[in-house]
Computed example of a mutant assay.
Amino acid sequence: MRSLFLALSLAILGVAPAAAQVVVPAADDGLPDDFHGKVQYFGNHSGEVRATVPGTPRRTDTKCPKREGGCPELIGGSFQAELEFDGDIVRGQYRGTGGMRPSTLIGRRSGANCRLFDTTDGSVWSGRCDREAFIGSVRSVPNAPEQIELVFETVGVNTVDFYQRERDLELVRAYDRLGGIVFGDGAGEARLDAILELQSYFVDPGKAYRSGTLRNVERQSEKKNSPIYSVYGEYTRRDGANAWARAQFEYDRFVCIETSIEPGYCRTIDPTPPEIEPTDDIFASLGLPVTAQGS
């Protein structure tokens, strides 16, 4: 998946600088209104900077014959941004090449549309912001010593859902605690409790197993001492309802578990815990160029 993101990200650098008028496409895969997480983007930017106050430091060594510094400087290059969403509140940071200074952003979003303010110079960033893209334009506030007009276009290369990530971390910790019992050796009767604990992460929380309530455990098989057998037990769910479970074993290897929550369906559990992807240094991990803070 990341190789696909990388291909898309690098391809966008080959796109000619966008025109001054930005057309923001409709989002097909927007973020939920209550999304709590972050999206990292990679793409390009182009535009111009004009110093309106004499003595304002210039971004490049370009000489301007006007003493008042009214000559526009063209800027453009690669662009990296990270936006963190907390419902409609958006905070972010960005950096780029070709005359773009790194800074941070803060503002709000309505659906897939963001209106953000640069914390360094107050310039207004507006456009589309969702898991697929961050596309829009930047304009300075009136009377700013530097007047900026630029457009940017990026694709989302990584999305981190903080809630889902925390759920995945909890599941990994459960595998560490219970996996050796669930997928190990030994009589199934002594493992049903651990199996129910791990299975709870895959069902509605209210219907999950309430720890310590397992009772009336018995081994069941068509033939006495058969290596293919099931272990039946009754328990109480977290919502207070009574329930039953039946785990299937073959030669003491756990196969699947059926419960009264899903009667007739024997759920298998992957013996491998989910992979937790890194949340930081995504650009480095993708092999994308890292922009120095002073660029």
Rank of each mutant, 00 (worst) to 15 (best):
K207H: 10
G96P: 00
R115F: 00
F5T: 05
G240S: 08
G99W: 02
V49D: 05
G156T: 05
A190W: 03
E262G: 07
I89Q: 13
D270N: 15
T259S: 15
E149K: 09
E258T: 13
V24H: 00
A284I: 02
T291P: 05
E68T: 08
N158M: 08
P227K: 03
D118S: 05
R108H: 09
G14H: 12
G156I: 03
P274W: 04
F42L: 05
F85Q: 06
E222F: 11
R167V: 07
L105D: 01
T62S: 12
P54K: 11
D121K: 08
E262L: 13
G96Y: 01
R219S: 12
V231L: 09
D239M: 04
G37D: 08
G87K: 10
K223M: 11
R191N: 06
A194R: 04
D86Y: 07
L4C: 07
D280Y: 03
E48Y: 14
G240K: 04
D193W: 02
S126E: 11
I135L: 15
I12Y: 04
P274C: 05
A27T: 14
P72R: 03
D86T: 10
S78F: 01
S226V: 01
S103R: 09
W125V: 11
I195F: 04
E277D: 13
G127W: 01
N113R: 15
R91T: 15
V231Q: 07
M100T: 00
A284R: 15
T52F: 06
I228D: 15
P54V: 05
D270S: 14
L4Q: 13
P205E: 14
P142D: 10
A292V: 07
I195R: 04
V138T: 09
S260A: 12
L150K: 01
D86E: 10
V182S: 03
L192W: 11
G240T: 02
S103I: 02
R131E: 11
D33K: 10
P54H: 09
A7S: 11
Y201I: 02
Q248H: 15
L178P: 00
L198A: 07
S211W: 00
F85K: 12
A194Y: 03
L178E: 09
E84R: 15
T291E: 11
V217R: 12
S260D: 15
Q40K: 12
I89Y: 02
L178I: 05
G186V: 06
Q220I: 13
F202Y: 15
V155Y: 12
L171T: 13
T259F: 03
D29G: 05
G233M: 06
D86F: 07
E149N: 14
G47Q: 04
V231S: 09
P54N: 10
I181D: 12
G37K: 07
D33Y: 02
D88M: 02
I106F: 13
S9A: 15
E132I: 00
T291H: 13
R238G: 01
T236H: 01
T236C: 00
L288H: 10
E197A: 14
Y201S: 08
A11N: 14
L10N: 06
G111P: 06
Q93K: 13
G37A: 05
D118P: 01
E277S: 11
L6A: 13
S78K: 07
R50V: 15
